[in-house]
């Protein structure tokens, strides 16, 4: 479980806080989605979880332990983060790449223990890419590469998985199967925290949605609580319509043509 408690994050020389008193929890066994316009503070929260953005005040706790009391390795054993983008300058065999997920558990001189192989095979299996183990990272499609990165995160062995816009460059089939994977991982007991722009998919797959706007929580709760036209129009500064997803009955968002003089203001 990941708890954000009145978190404030200020970038140096910035007039306003990037994240301004944000509180919410990503529970085990659930998919928690953080959504919001560009510049609303989503990625800053992820950087804070990586200890790359210091908190001005408030606290973040993982399974009840304050982040401030966890060193980076201990943190990496509890929570795995798949960042927005990653490219390898020197390609690696997929197996070797996923094995890097065991790094927080390794002592620098020790030979790889046998259970490491089990952890890697298990991670490949849960990410659904056992067949890719022998390929190299430069031979993968965009969707395969994202799954390989998730397998590396699963190899870390923690109970929390954080994903920053994991489906941005994927086509519909790969995106859908990725969301199904997140739902399955949550069902298996992980706390899945997902940053995404895909409101409609989030509305279908997430248990809780946290809507950020200019560093604050504009709305939080079940998809039905958050996916309301009045709330979303205000935050996204665009006219839209909420209907019902005919397949599963979840709320679905339909952006409309902008008839008024309004245009999205640059809040970032």
């Amino acid at each position: 479980m990941i708890d954000f408690d009145r978190v404030v994050i200020r970038y140096p020389r910035a007039a306003v806080a990037a994240v301004n008193v944000v509180s919410f929890s990503a529970m085990r066994g659930a998919v928690t989605a953080v959504v919001g316009p560009n510049g609303s503070g989503k990625s800053t929260l992820v950087r804070a979880l990586l200890k790359l953005a210091p908190l001005a005040s408030g606290s973040i706790a993982i399974d009840g332990v304050d982040l401030a009391h966890l060193d980076r390795r201990a943190l990496a054993r509890r929570a795995a983060v798949v960042s927005q983008r990653e490219s390898l300058v020197f390609p690696l065999p997929v197996w070797e790449y996923v094995a890097l997920g065991r790094h927080p558990h390794e002592d620098p001189w020790a030979a790889a223990p046998a259970r490491t192989d089990g952890a890697i095979a298990g991670a490949l299996d849960r990410a659904g890419i056992t067949a890719l183990g022998d390929r190299t990272t430069d031979e993968l499609s965009g969707g395969e590469w994202q799954r390989v990165r998730i397998a590396r995160a699963l190899a870390q062995g923690g109970e929390a998985l954080v994903l920053d816009e994991p489906t941005t460059f994927l086509d519909i089939a790969h995106e859908m199967s990725m969301f199904e994977l997140f739902a399955q991982l949550a069902k298996d007991g992980m706390a899945v925290l997902l940053v995404s722009h895909q409101l409609n998919l989030v509305a279908r797959f997430a248990d809780t949605i946290v809507l950020l706007h200019r560093g604050r929580v504009a709305a939080a709760g079940t998809p039905a609580d958050v996916m309301r036209a009045s709330v979303l129009e205000e935050v996204y500064e665009w006219p839209l319509l909420i209907t019902r997803d005919p397949a599963v009955g979840a709320p679905a968002l339909l952006p409309l043509r902008n008839r008024g003089p309004r245009s999205p203001s640059q809040s970032s």
Binding site: K51, R72, A76, V81, L88, V89, F90, G101, H103
Partner: peptide, 23 residues
């Protein structure tokens, strides 16, 4: 050689290194 595993991790980039426990 002692730091070689850290270099493996660093070659993934800053954010992925942080995610794997390397400053």
């Amino acid at each position: 050689l002692w730091l070689a595993r850290d270099i493996d991790i660093l070659s993934l980039g800053e954010e992925s290194a942080a995610a794997l426990g390397v400053d």
